[in-house]
């Protein structure tokens, strides 16, 4: 018989070690591969610099694009609301910071729980809106494949279980906490092999786009 406490200890012990190992190895292999592949040397004469235009694009692509906002407001709003909610609840919740400081050896100040709680609600609402958008917007629906829905579930489960655990809506608490940790482990294990890799690759990609344009002397 699996007791909630046995389950919690397993998720905090063996399962966590396995998930973190797969996650870190996977992410490093993929990043190393991308960077080490390199690019064929361009023989064309450069018409501008690469570094600064690259950095500028990292910034501009992080800000909402006016044209896209006019055409697809929900994509932009849901995307921002979800990502801000996720990052605040992931990085500024005190128990999470305790975990990071144990892992990296340093921590940072967190936010009071009611604020993190509100951010988590925004994150969950944002994710639901993003799914609704994906299912109802014909363009989004056509562009979506199975992986998009898988990634949505992988992201949604930790936020949902975290909310339920914080508000102690699953009884007993060890079960709630165990489910939350397990859902994150699932996310960590599949992270390197799915689109979730954008967490790390987006800066590379944005910089590269900007740098290419800069070299050609055009605006990105």
């Amino acid at each position: 018989m699996i007791e909630p406490m046995d389950f919690l200890l397993w998720t905090r012990g063996t399962a966590f070690d396995v998930a973190v190992t797969i996650f870190i190895i996977g992410v490093i292999i993929r990043l190393f591969e991308i960077v080490s592949l390199g690019r064929v040397k361009s023989l064309a004469e450069p018409k501008g610099t690469e570094f600064l235009p690259g950095m500028k694009t990292v910034l501009t692509r992080t800000l909402p694009n006016g044209g896209t906002f006019k055409r697809q407001p929900l994509t932009i709003i849901a995307g921002y609301v979800f990502h801000i909610g996720l990052l605040v609840s992931l990085l500024l919740f005190i128990p999470h910071i305790e975990l990071f400081s144990q892992t990296f050896g340093f921590g940072w100040p967190g936010l009071p729980n009611p604020i993190v709680d509100a951010a988590a609600v925004l994150g969950i609402v944002g994710l639901l809106a993003a799914l609704w958008n994906r299912l109802t917007n014909p363009v989004m629906k056509m562009l979506s494949d199975k992986e998009d829905y898988l990634v949505w579930i992988l992201t949604f489960l930790p936020m949902l279980t975290g909310y339920l655990a914080y508000h102690r809506m699953i009884d007993p608490y060890p079960l709630a906490m165990g489910l939350h940790i397990l859902s994150i482990e699932l996310l960590l294990v599949l992270f390197p092999f799915t689109k979730l890799m954008h967490t790390f690759t987006l800066f590379l990609a944005r910089w590269y786009n900007g740098a290419m344009s800069g070299r050609r002397g055009v605006e990105s």
Binding site: R12, F16, D17, T21, I25, I28, P95, Q102, F104
Partner: peptide, 20 residues
């Protein structure tokens, strides 16, 4: 703290990073 895993996370992470 209750949120800290049971194993030695930083060691696991370092080993995994080296293997990666």
């Amino acid at each position: 703290a209750l949120s800290i895993p049971l194993g030695e996370v930083s060691r696991t992470a370092s080993v995994a990073a080296a293997a990666g």
